[in-house]
Structures are given as structure tokens and as C-alpha cells.
């Protein structure tokens, strides 16, 4: 008499093992490593959460908010998983991307700003992209739009990131993770249990390329003085909470 359990569908068998790595497929609730042990440790989700919307609120553009995600983008594209950059503020420099290990053939840029939200939603719903980064194009951010993106993000196995530019008023959010980014860069959790937690990722707006290059003692204890001064009185994001 053959054991019935031996004839489970293969899909079920594979699902039941969480120690099995199945290429492109990732079980839900998983997180992608950010490429930096310190950051992974700091993030409440242990990395960039898959199937979730992450909101990033840089105090101004160009202070490390894109470099923050580059190791993850590099890892995804190296595995042949496409990533989508939607309406970035400037042109991502291909030489730099290449240098940090991004495989350019899997990087697609949506340049048109007026279709940005639609394109993001399509990308998320397809479940094919390894990550989608959206620089919110509208000056007024509607909470329904963000809600739609969040629902769409749940279809896919990838994390989705929305950047709000300085001056954009982010809606009261339902996203699982909202990070404030200040020059340094230093990261603040704007949602979550421990909002006082601050991570100094680099200094002088320079993030070391890999973890091994990082000197945590520097970044943690001696943030550059000039940054501190620059940050004083910047209460833009505090009002959001």
C-alpha cells in the first residue's frame, strides 16, 4: 500500500521546504538583502521586504537615496531579474551602474513622467520585476494612488520603492516601511515601533560600496559635523508622523 504522502504534488512539496532556493521564486514574507549587513540588521524586516511598498523620503535628492538600493539592484540584475526605474529625476549614469555591478540589460527606465504611476502598477502586477523604483512624479500625492501601488506590490515577489521628492507631501501611509533619509546619509524609521532608531550609513553623503569597506565606528559615532548643522531645523518629515 503506497503512502499517500508520497504522491503530493511537486509544487506542494517544494513549498513546504523553506531551505530550498528555487531561482526566481521566493516564498512570501521574505526580504531581499540590502547588500549591507548593518542595514539588514537595522531594518525591521531584515532587508527590503518582498511584496511590500517601501516609502523613501530623502530630505533632498542626491544624498545617497539611490545608492542605498544599488547593491540590491546589482544583485537582482546579476541574477537576470529585471528592475524598473520609473521617472528618475536625472539620468542614471551607466558607467557608475556598471561599476557597482548592475547588469544594464536588465535595467529598464520609464522616462515618461505622466504615465509613471500606470507603468509602476503594470510592472508590479506582472510579478516579473526584481524591484521597482518610482520617483513620484506628481506634486500632489494622492493616497489612493499609493494604496493602488501597495496592492499591486502584493502581487509580486519584489519590493517596490517610492521616492517622495522634497516638497511633496506624502499621504498618511499604509506602507509597511517608511524611511527618512538625511544627508550623511542617515536613515530614520518614520513608521515602526522604534522611531528613534537612526542608522548612519556613511559620512559626507558617501556610502562605501561594500560592507567590508565600511568602518562602522566612523559612521556610527562621528557623523560629519557639517551634516549635523545642515540638518538642524529640518523638520519637514517630522510633521508627517
Amino acid at each position: 500500500m503506497p503512502d499517500a504522502r508520497r504522491f503530493q504534488p511537486i509544487e506542494q512539496l517544494l513549498e513546504s521546504r523553506n531551505d530550498l532556493w528555487r531561482g526566481r521564486h521566493r516564498p512570501a514574507g521574505d526580504a531581499l538583502t540590502s547588500g549591507r549587513a548593518e542595514l539588514d540588521h537595522w531594518l525591521p524586516t531584515g532587508g527590503w521586504p518582498c511584496g511590500r511598498l517601501v516609502e523613501l523620503l530623502p530630505e533632498r535628492l542626491g544624498i545617497g537615496e539611490f545608492s542605498l538600493l544599488l547593491p540590491m539592484l546589482a544583485e537582482q540584475t546579476r541574477r537576470g531579474v529585471p528592475v524598473l526605474l520609473v521617472s528618475p529625476p536625472w539620468v542614471p549614469c551607466p558607467q557608475h551602474l556598471e561599476r557597482v555591478g548592475v547588469a544594464l540589460e536588465w535595467l529598464v527606465v520609464v522616462r515618461s513622467a505622466d504615465q509613471a504611476l500606470w507603468a509602476t502598477e503594470q510592472g508590479l502586477k506582472s510579478g516579473l520585476c526584481g524591484a521597482i523604483l518610482l520617483w513620484h512624479p506628481r506634486s500632489r500625492v494622492r493616497s489612493q494612488a499609493i494604496r493602488r501601488l501597495q496592492l499591486a506590490a502584493e502581487c509580486g515577489p519584489a519590493p517596490a520603492f517610492v521616492y517622495y521628492k522634497p516638497g511633496q507631501q506624502p499621504p498618511p501611509s499604509l506602507a509597511s516601511l517608511r524611511l527618512g533619509i538625511r544627508p550623511g546619509p542617515e536613515l530614520t524609521l518614520l513608521r515602526g515601533n522604534d522611531q528613534s532608531k537612526v542608522l548612519h550609513l556613511g559620512r559626507g553623503n558617501v556610502i562605501p560600496l561594500s560592507t567590508s569597506d565600511m568602518a562602522p565606528t566612523h559612521s556610527r559615532d562621528q557623523p560629519e559635523r557639517s551634516d549635523r548643522i545642515a540638518c538642524k531645523g529640518q523638520t519637514l518629515w517630522e510633521s508627517v508622523q
Binding site: 527606465v109 520609464v110 522616462r111 515618461s112 503594470q122 506582472s126
Partner: peptide, 24 residues
Amino acid sequence: DAWPALLDRLGARLGEDGLAGLAT
């Protein structure tokens, strides 16, 4: 086939210039 399909769908609405890759 799904990835080219997604690119087709995006390209149809965004136009030739709206969707691009980067090359050095």
C-alpha cells in the same frame, strides 16, 4: 515570454522614447 510581453505593453502606451535601457 512574460517579460517581453510586459515590455510590449509598457512600450505601446509610453511610446518609443518613454521606455528605455541604458548603454555606455
